[in-house]
Design a protein around this nucleic acid. Structure first.
Lengths: 342, 342
DNA sequence: CTGAAAGCGCTTACAG
DNA sequence: CTGAAAGCGCTTACAG
């Protein structure tokens, strides 16, 4: 029902190849011919059939972004950054969510929807080195975001988790805090964000000569606001002294903030609090939350660029690369007060 | 390079049509034949080429969702709901953002990416009745979300804006509040969310015999947290007495909440506050925010279902329908205290 | 229940 | 600078 290239070529009095040349900005078309074709396109309201183009060219110009959940502000902001980076390279983005279940993470990764996209950006959550072969076996060009799979089977854009957490902790220590809670630990984890951030926290303590007290490293499984609030409430009930909180993401920090204030503790006077991620909301919380900006925009741009190279180069062309994007310490109200070092 | 139907048919010793029948669950295939085909598919790791299928069938099984911005929690949650509703009907979702500029809203609507999707869900922001013909002229099956275009050119799923705002206002009035700020007005607007919500606010006042004081209807152009905070700060500077706030969305309410508390006003004791949208965060703010749940899940399901009907029925098959989804008042801490009626 | 054939609308060598 | 032809990998009548 809608016009095809044949209709355009007939109306313009040229061959279908010439129409294709005009559409694809092939340079060697006479101006007059080009104009005739352009006029015909406008007159017919012609738009190329993208399925036909994809079938023939093998490219869809769509990539997918596989994330746990869009309702999580961190991933919504990541998706926004990826969509903008992709748009600047002429790509559209198909978002797929897998939630918090390992099963569904695996099945989303493997389903044939992959046939409709040129490549995949995948923000790893539950999978780890044990799943290396599974991921290596996926033929679609793929770039990983996140931190769990090392010596990776695919290109990988990471943030500097340990370094960022170290800087966050150092920031509180430099403000005179000595009893600093680490909120969001995953005991036993080594290569995930929680493990790396805990390592950074410990490095900072060591550098300042402060002993690590494992009672201050609070385990929190999932990193939602409710989890942060509950964990902080439980910690307060223990009655241990503390003067700072390094939360392993902003959402945990915001949940903790609320509980601290309900308990009558002043932030930052009594407790200095810092998060991780620099989600938009940290600018507006009360008090505004200090945090680590992991370099989201740069992560998105880098990942899209690597993926395009993979797509164009054939996915097995060269060995996987790992790129760590620099972070930035963002100082706001929640850490604005120094105390005399004890 | 990857296997095709021909490879499968050759390996299974059947015709290509039989392979197609198996893949598409055509019932009249002998069990033994089906199994041979299934084995061949597994052996070759065959997955259908979706571009070829789309070219032939005219269907991509992808719809697009056109929204202002994913970083806004309301739209992230809407996108989540739409993706879940779409997935349950076998559809993927391509998200397109247009930001806050009218120009870009128009251009996203009209770009040929439409050729790659079966239909479009479009959350109207800046366009209105003046753009009716533009929207009517778009051939792609389309369902509108939002409130600005009436006697619409397309199917339309709306929330009950006026009724919801009326219920929110009535909730504060029933709690004894009499000087209620309306936060987020768009002066002169009639058919948009702001106009409708203001109308609902006024209806509730009238029903309680409270005179409308236009100094309490605070204009706020965009509805971000910063805007709510700034508008509330400016209002406090006027020194007018008030005891309640009906914010036209949750984000405004959260911004206002912070400023009220900074100014030493207690919520809900001194000022009762209610928002609109029921975004996840309202459960965790301090205090937890009362709000109107506009029925997001139902909006998403209804819109996806209408769109599928349009896609399957041909987009001009019947006259546009308008469906208003019921809302729900969600009472939380921010309105939990009644005061004696003055 | 299964097969042979046409064709969806493009792009891409190959010619000229 | 432009044309004629092949073919990407499916689905869909049409037969039998």
């Amino acid at each position: 029902m809608s016009a095809t290239m044949h209709d355009v070529s007939r109306l313009a009095g040229v061959s279908i190849k010439t129409v294709s040349n005009v559409i694809n900005d092939y340079p060697y078309v006479r101006d007059e011919t080009r104009q005739r074709v352009l006029d015909a396109i406008a007159a017919l309201g012609y738009t190329p059939n993208l399925s036909a183009r994809s079938l023939r060219s093998g490219r869809t110009n769509v990539i997918s972004l596989i994330i746990p959940e869009l309702r999580n502000a961190y991933f919504a902001e990541l998706a926004d950054a990826v969509m903008k980076a992709a748009a600047s390279r002429g790509l559209s983005v198909l978002i797929e969510q897998f939630g918090n279940e390992r099963e569904s993470e695996l099945s989303v990764l493997q389903k044939p929807r992959g046939q409709m996209v040129d490549g995949v950006l995948y923000s790893v959550l539950a999978l780890d080195e044990a799943d290396r072969d599974t991921i290596a076996g996926i033929p679609t060009p793929m770039v990983l975001l996140g931190d769990r799979i090392f010596n990776g089977p695919k290109d990988h854009v990471t943030m500097q988790n340990a370094e960022g957490a170290r800087a966050a902790t150092d920031h509180l220590l430099s403000g005179g805090r000595r009893r600093i809670v680490a909120l969001g630990a995953h005991p036993g984890e080594v290569i995930g964000s929680a493990g790396l951030r805990l390592a950074g926290y410990r490095e900072a303590l060591a550098a300042h000569g402060v002993a690590y007290d494992e009672r201050l490293a609070i385990p929190v499984g999932t990193w939602h606001r409710r989890d942060g609030a509950e964990a902080m409430r439980a910690f307060l009930a223990l009655g241990l002294p503390f003067d700072g909180v390094v939360a392993f993401n902003d959402t945990l920090a915001l949940g903790a903030l609320r509980v601290l204030q309900e308990a009558g503790l002043r932030v930052p006077e009594d407790v200095s609090v810092i998060g991780y991620d620099d989600i938009d909301e940290t600018q507006y919380s009360m008090p505004a939350l200090s945090t680590i900006d992991p370099g989201r925009e740069q992560i998105a741009r880098t990942a899209v660029d690597l993926l395009i190279e993979r797509i164009e180069g054939g996915s097995t062309a060269f060995t996987p690369r790992e790129i760590a994007v620099p972070f930035r310490l963002v100082e706001r109200e929640s850490t604005a007060v120094n105390v005399p070092a004890s």
